[in-house]
Design a protein around this nucleic acid. Structure first.
Lengths: 206, 206
DNA sequence: GGATGGTTTAACTAAATAGTTAAATTATTC
DNA sequence: GAATAATTTAACTATTTAGTTAAACCATCC
């Protein structure tokens, strides 16, 4: 019971922290505010997790935890390179839709040069880049993809998905941008995701 | 002399602020720190510019000021759709290379749903999206581009360029990511930029 | 040199901040 | 029920924060 209570408290803290770090960044986040949103006394954050930096690392790790597993689960070795690439893109969409806070936090880390990024997350990222490199290399070897720079393709996919997802509130907010994508909403829409697939498959097709 | 002195003071404040806002975001930035970096007394920020929010808006506007003009200057109506698109991409690279603080601040704004974004900047963004929409529509009409969603293509280009630029310090920092792009450095390298051009032109080619 | 206007400074204000402490409360075990 | 351990609380600490104020300083003009 005590163990369960501690876990629930920790979970509430991590959820609140994820939202606030994604909204105002590490330096802009207030531990008092995180405590308030989590519905706990501030000292409990220090008791259960640690200082602000430890909390941040925990949030990222918690959200990033199984992204790599999702990629390896969704991409089967028996698939063609084209279908592997499609599965990769779909997984990116899935991860970003399920963890918008993670996407926002990663945007902020990019903006500050990875200043508060734990080493473990960098390793996860490297593995994901390894996956797409493998797909593109296989496609090139089988003569169905052009030879290209895998990291650039990776950036195009991640960039398009994340920017589409993250720009949704901005588009809603400003009338000038409302018409840029006729289908709006919180999710990366199926139509937009399909278009990213088409464009990326076209881009690498030999 | 007095006028010149006020201008120079303002410039120093804006430069310092741009760096700090890009590094730690709006909420994370400290007016005291901006003043220290600018080498001025804090009250001068309030005298010359105004409160923190006014300073932020001024920084964005100052950096964004002539981005739209750059696009219209670089893209000639006599060019083919393909060359227009190339010029568009090259301009994105140029703007991001010249104003990395702008790119970082825009990443942060995306992360927080455009919370502190002035309306004028949204209008500038809409005009840029209008430019690429025009290029793609012209290409489709001339039968050289597929019919697509212009905003998605825009996000792919912006996302790739910005992520490549912004991920450079992260790649330098973490050994696990050092091999992802064999040519590193601060600029979006010519090779990477050329590859983005190739991939995007391939993606939209009919 | 004095008047005027612009710029800068040092000190201030009220509130907020990350982290700490020790007591109170709750849960578990025998 | 008592002892022990885990969790939570309220208050605290020293520092920092955005913004303000009035005086000092500087530049220009007649």
């Amino acid at each position: 019971m005590t163990k369960l209570r501690g876990k629930q408290t920790t979970q509430r803290i991590l959820n609140a922290a994820a939202g606030i770090f994604s909204d105002v960044g590490f330096e802009g986040a207030r531990v008092d505010e995180i405590a308030r949103v989590a519905g706990v006394n501030k000292a409990m954050i220090y008791y259960h997790i640690g200082d602000k930096k430890a909390l941040y690392a925990r949030v990222i790790h918690h959200a990033f935890g199984n992204a790599v597993e999702q990629f390896t689960r969704n991409i089967k070795s028996t698939q063609s390179p084209q279908n592997k690439l499609r599965a990769f893109i779909r997984t990116v969409v899935e991860v970003v839709d399920r963890h918008p806070e993670l996407a926002a936090i990663m945007l902020r880390e990019q903006a500050s040069g990875g200043k508060n990024l734990p080493e473990t997350v960098a390793q996860d990222l490297a593995r994901i880049v390894g996956i797409i490199s493998g797909i593109l290399a296989e496609g090139a070897q089988k003569g169905v993809f052009v030879k290209t720079i895998p990291f650039v393709v990776h950036m195009m996919i991640i960039g398009a998905v994340v920017f589409l997802k993250m720009s949704s509130p901005i588009r809603s907010k400003f009338p000038a941008l409302s018409d840029t994508l006729s289908i709006s909403g919180d999710k990366v829409s199926d139509m937009a995701a399909a278009e990213i697939e088409n464009l990326v498959l076209n881009a690498v097709r030999k």
